[in-house]
Design a binder for these strands. Structure first.
Lengths: 356, 356
DNA sequence: CTGTTAGCGCTTTCAA
DNA sequence: TTGAAAGCGCTAACAG
């Protein structure tokens, strides 16, 4: 590699070879630790290397081998603690395997997502781990073309119906069902869902761009209600906002004609918005309204009351995704469409109380 | 690049050239948008390119130019919301400049930090943005060698006395001073500091590995006290724990012989730990103890009482760091040791009240 | 076991 | 304006 202006030349393998008085290939074998090299030469090469301050050039290596040992990790926004945790988990696992992470934010924007994926492909990443902004039932051309190209892809957090790739997700249906049942068992019958997938007046009318998480949690919520013979009321469901800030989301439910006695908030932002909504209306919890929230965070035990939450194993999801990707990368083109469905953990604190 | 097992060959520039019936160089110029190419040929090349589905190979490009258009972003842990925000800000800015981010966690471990920096250098990154785990007064060989190598480095969040690199930080001294003064103005005289830099009984004895943020906030705290003629009492200072979990940090202060009437918590984890400590001891806030906390987070207005906080412009710090790095990367070897000291914002809510 | 050689895909002089 | 050719630093046959 030519050194760009300002950068001094770095020692190359040839120089090491020269300094050690051996051929390039021998130096390469000694440093790369492959093939046969006599102990004597290996030693000579090794300390010739660090005596001149040699540092292997990964770009050149990739160029020759076709492997970059880098993967792309793409999420909506690393600033969101949930995604941050996913990324962190993946990063740790990958780094331990000697793989670097190119992380990219999409801001839930499909155009941007396509662009970043394209950038990753140009960079020849060995694989991609992604929580796509695409609706569960949408087609995702940029991922399909990547897949077709032979680049391993692993989905985490959100699944995609039309993409044949290993997926690591929460058991969203089960988690939402169990959370709803907890409320049901406390005697609640009018349970609101904040950030479900349903849009219009017909609860069965799921928008095309709904995320798998929304759909599945909505599903679990419905399952619980109907199996208790309770009707699903559209007026109790606040849809997931398309914008990132969903601060008004709870409004529809809190100020609507139906009067919930309990709320299930299925995403961290929804929880925050709900809590603000309650406080703003001087509603007490669990006095006026019980609450069960998704996504545990250190602060959820510090609110008044401490929150009953559905904890997602987010870092673990990142780690498992990394492992699945690794498997894909090592076994060439084995398109095992595995699904890892991780269990939630229900942490019962004080925000959900018996209906009086 | 040879295609590793499983990956189909991607079309190369040569194939585009052939398909368009021109020489490689011409195709390269047309696609790269540089040098002279006649309109006719440019067009022919361009649609030959996407008719065969050509995608430029960034690795080969880097190999030839010596530029990777990738930078390393390293922090202790992206799962920490503060760092996540720093990273997110930097990522956004860099991506808009067409630069990819390799993000790496160090877990506050210097050995790991040295390793990831080394990995970044092997990858030939064009620059590094880092919040080092090193103490402010420590030497950081891995960064110095990088700098000497000509790789631009920008420090964010934490500064390093011995590294000659642009730095983007909060005005820590001022922020801590103003926060302390707020408490002072409310009549408090016994103010505890959670996560200061001081270790032993002598408050002036600052450990070698103390972070610049700890030292500077400690400094601001002392400044405020002494300028009000108040003595700095070691017993009121809980040191920053070396471990990442500092849940017992407040213990020393809360259960010690001195009895603070107010607390200044200078880091998010410290705030959490303090809040838990108060709750555990059934101490009310601001009734028994006033509190001012660093790092605003969406939940700080939802606790009881809502917290008076010192908000750091974390995403902005990431963005500014990206801009500074960009400047360094474009102007070869201009080692402007600039310091961007961003202002905090004091958000007054209810956790700090007048001393009765 | 070791050295020579031929690329990897792209950029970039340098002639034509 | 265009094309031929020489690398960038490393790996990987292949021959010695």
């Amino acid at each position: 590699m030519p050194s760009p202006p300002g950068k001094p030349d770095q020692p190359t393998l040839s120089e090491v070879a020269e300094a050690a008085g051996v051929g390039r290939a021998t130096a390469a074998r000694a440093l790369g630790g492959y093939g046969y090299v006599s102990e004597a030469l290996r030693a000579r090469v090794l300390d010739a290397a660090d005596s001149i301050g040699y540092r292997p050039n990964a770009v050149a290596r990739s160029m020759a081998t076709g492997v970059t040992e880098a993967v792309g990790v793409v999420v909506a926004d690393v600033a969101n603690p949930f995604f941050a945790s996913l990324v962190s988990g993946a990063e740790q696992e990958l780094r331990n395997m000697g793989i670097d992470c190119l992380v990219a934010n999409t801001g839930e924007d499909m155009t941007r997502e396509a662009e970043v994926v394209e950038a990753l492909l140009r960079r020849q990443v060995d694989g991609i781990i992604i929580s796509s902004a695409a609706g569960m039932n949408e087609k995702v051309p940029h991922l399909e073309s990547a897949r077709k190209l032979g680049v391993p892809i692993v989905l985490f957090d959100r699944s995609l119906r039309h993409l044949d790739a290993p997926t690591v997700v929460l058991d969203n249906v089960g988690a939402a069902r169990r959370a709803t049942e907890l409320l049901l068992d406390l005697g609640h019958r009018e349970i609101a869902l904040i950030w479900g997938a349903s849009m219009g007046d017909d609860p069965l009318m799921i928008p095309q761009d709904a995320l798998s998480t929304s759909i599945e949690r909505f599903q679990g919520y419905c399952d619980a209600l109907t199996s208790h013979g309770i009707e699903v009321k559209p007026g109790l469901i606040a849809p997931r906002p398309s914008t990132l800030s969903g601060s008004q989301a709870p409004t529809r439910v809190l100020d609507g004609p139906e009067h919930p006695t309990a709320i299930l908030a299925v995403e961290a932002d929804a929880t925050l918005a709900t809590l603000k909504g309650l406080r703003h209306r001087l509603l007490s919890c669990p006095g006026d309204l019980s609450l069960v929230a998704f996504d545990d965070a250190p602060w959820t035990e510090l609110t008044s009351p401490p929150l009953t939450v559905v904890q997602q194993p987010s870092a673990e999801m990142g780690r498992v995704a990394a492992v699945r990707l690794q498997e894909l990368m090592s076994t060439r083109s084995n398109w095992s469409t595995s699904v890892d469905m991780l269990p939630e953990q229900l942490i019962v604190r004080d925000s959900a109380a018996p209906l009086l």
